[in-house]
Design a protein around this nucleic acid. Sequence first.
DNA 1: GTTTGATAGTCAACTTAGTTGACAGTCGTT
DNA 2: AACGACTGTCAACTAAGTTGACTATCAAAC
Lengths: 150, 150
Amino acid sequence: MSDNKQWYADLVLPVLLHEARRTYGRAIRAALTAEGFDDMPRLGPRLLGGMHRFGGQPTDLAGDFGISKQAASKLVDALVVRGYLDRSVDPDDRRRMLLSLTERGEAAAKATSSASDRIDRELDQTVGADAVAQMRETLGTLVGLGERAG
Amino acid sequence: MSDNKQWYADLVLPVLLHEARRTYGRAIRAALTAEGFDDMPRLGPRLLGGMHRFGGQPTDLAGDFGISKQAASKLVDALVVRGYLDRSVDPDDRRRMLLSLTERGEAAAKATSSASDRIDRELDQTVGADAVAQMRETLGTLVGLGERAG
DNA sequence: GTTTGATAGTCAACTTAGTTGACAGTCGTT
DNA sequence: AACGACTGTCAACTAAGTTGACTATCAAAC
């Protein structure tokens, strides 16, 4: 593990992906804990940071995250209870919920993206922006493969 | 999502990593289920496929997987009960367990790696082996960052 | 305008998989 | 022989997901 040869050479790609993601996960969780956001559910940071992607509709959120709407509902509930989200009824469609970040939620989202950006920056400085861009492209292709085969 | 522009451009890297890993996860689970291995715990495929890495010692396994030794013990137990693993006492150190694949375990490991390889091959054909190799390198760097900071 | 079917979210019961703390058995060293 | 360290397991708990049933609301058809 500590020799500078390619220790990861015999790792299958999914494990490598998992470990790479954990690098972010650990950094983000550490940053959140350090700032007092120590009651964050696992998908909390992703939700707070991705509000613009699903605009605050739990069902869209479920689709985006690949979980059931019930799980999404519980996740949202946890974040509301812990003061990260405001939940209100959509006046245009009273079945729907409108979610928005509280001040605490904004702060946690900021801490999250800041920790993530720090890793990004470190990676950029180590391998260069081109390599990162190409990795993103290849990862995008990989996700696309899964969606077609889905 | 369905336009061929870089739909993933606004995704943070950890989410992209997570989704890329899910591509493998879905394919592997589907292949296992199709062959009758429908009682596989989440980390089962990784364990069966990585036996050579920790040689069959649950404690090393726990370190490798980043889980507690208790969780590793339960995981092993589940795989033994379901017929994927044999567990016996190490005669040289009777505290230790020696794990080995049963025939069923071998078959499941084969199905796993075969599904994983199919995705690998598809990716190779789409982006080329060089891009994959470079991605592996960048991912390795990323994991290394986490280990230093850890 | 009322009925009818689809949709958004929640509640309840359950399962899976992780955690920590306590412990028994074994080993190695003094 | 005794002490301390290490391996694996048991028990109790927690976190986070699942499915099925349900309510409330909307939209469209008649």
